[in-house]
């Protein structure tokens, strides 16, 4: 990677695991849980956040010296809201069904804490290129968790991945269903998203014991 120095690369790779926005920084949980019943919705949501956070971080970073600190929250919200409107209109134009499933959660990217959190913590203090990398890194970290949760919830809940029946047909009893396997509809309900994320946190902190909190 000639383009990226070691320090820049760290900005992208850190949020993927040891500084993950969801499991370590506790940011952006709302949307991570609400839309992960299907893998496709998780992926689209990740792409939307990638766009908003990448572009938003650059914009805020460029304006960081002219924003009065007293009204910075309103300015940040307006920037995010504009970007989110773009995402919403693009989704409505090219993926109408999907934008129906995501419903208000596209709008809620505005208040997604990852975005405000990274603006406050990073973009207001760093240059545009670094802020862009930080935005990409954090939204990839967010995407990793979303895709893991979406993968397990869709696979165990409805036996499909991206709408393809990977486990066989539950009605005609083919594939694993022939051996008496049943879909666990409970995985599609809200509470299991929380428990899935809890388990991901458990696994991650068991592997890296330095992340353990002392109560």
């Amino acid at each position: 990677m000639g383009l990226l120095s070691k320090k820049d690369l760290k900005l992208i790779t850190d949020p993927l695991a040891d500084d993950n926005p969801i499991t370590i920084q506790v940011l952006g949980i709302c949307s991570a849980l609400a839309i992960t019943a299907e893998l496709k919705a998780s992926i689209v949501m990740s792409v939307a956040v990638l766009f908003v956070l990448g572009v938003g971080n650059v914009v805020i970073s460029l304006m960081r010296n002219i924003i009065p600190s007293k009204i910075r929250i309103i300015v940040q919200l307006i920037v995010v809201a504009t970007l989110v409107i773009i995402v919403d209109l693009v989704l409505k134009a090219f993926a109408y069904e999907l934008s129906k499933t995501l419903s208000v959660f596209v709008g809620l990217i505005i208040t997604n804490c990852i975005i405000m959190g990274r603006f406050e913590a990073f973009a207001l203090a760093n240059g545009p290129w670094k802020s862009f990398l930080d935005g990409i890194g954090n939204s990839l970290g967010y995407a990793v968790i979303l895709i893991i949760v979406g993968f397990f919830r869709e696979l165990l809940g409805s036996g499909t991945l991206l709408g393809i029946k990977v486990l066989g047909d539950p009605i005609e009893k083919t594939g694993v269903y022939a051996f008496g396997y049943e879909n666990n509809g409970f995985m599609l309900l809200a509470p299991m998203a929380l428990i899935t994320v809890g388990i991901i946190i458990w696994v991650q902190r068991s592997r890296n014991t330095s992340l353990i909190e002392d109560n």
């Binding site: 499991t23 506790v26 309900l189 809200a190 509470p191 299991m192 998203a193 929380l194 428990i195 994320v197 809890g198 946190i201 458990w202 696994v203 991650q204 902190r205 068991s206 014991t209 353990i212 909190e213 002392d214 109560n215």
Partner: peptide, 28 residues
């Protein structure tokens, strides 16, 4: 829960997630 013996990797955030999940099942 501070006085309970929670598995170390679950302490703090992890157990809070799982408790919230259980509470959500209750609220269902």
């Amino acid at each position: 829960i501070r006085y309970s013996n929670v598995p170390a990797p679950l302490r703090g955030l992890g157990i809070t997630f799982i408790i919230t999940g259980l509470m959500a099942i209750g609220f269902m």
